[in-house]
Design a protein around this nucleic acid. Structure first.
Length: 109
DNA sequence: CCCTTGACCAAAC
DNA sequence: GGTTTGGCCAAGG
């Protein structure tokens, strides 16, 4: 069933569970799949096959930095989308205490 | 198999 | 505070 999904698929699936107005870090997203491959999460976003289906812009660095984005428009658009979701981005950073979602116990492992 | 490559992380400097 | 360093994991060549 779910366990049959590739790690990549699990990552995508869990990412889509992040509620509007929240973000998740690469590390937490990896953890939600019961893995520690947080670097690989970045690769999955870069290789994203469904740019329109998957909200990659919600994935940020653990230190609160917005991080990178290779979609059209680059980081600027990433920030714009985050703000559109009601997330406050100050000087390229996000307050994870307020907007971070851990999704532990809700994600597919 | 071994080697390289990342949209990263935490600690050390 | 910033920058560097070593570690991390899965994919692909």
């Amino acid at each position: 069933m779910y366990n049959a999904m590739d790690l990549t698929q699990k990552i995508y699936f869990n990412l889509m569970k992040v509620p509007k107005g929240k973000v998740i870090t690469y590390k937490e997203l990896a953890k939600s799949t019961n893995s520690r491959a947080y670097r690989f999460v970045g690769n999955c976003m870069k290789n994203n096959k469904f740019p329109d289906k998957i909200p990659c812009y919600k994935v940020v660095n653990s230190n609160g930095n917005v991080g990178n984005y290779s979609g059209k428009g680059g980081v600027k658009i990433k920030i714009k989308k985050l703000r559109f979701d009601g997330i406050k981005v100050v000087n390229g950073k996000i307050d994870l205490k307020r907007f971070g979602e851990s999704l532990n116990n809700g994600g597919i492992q």
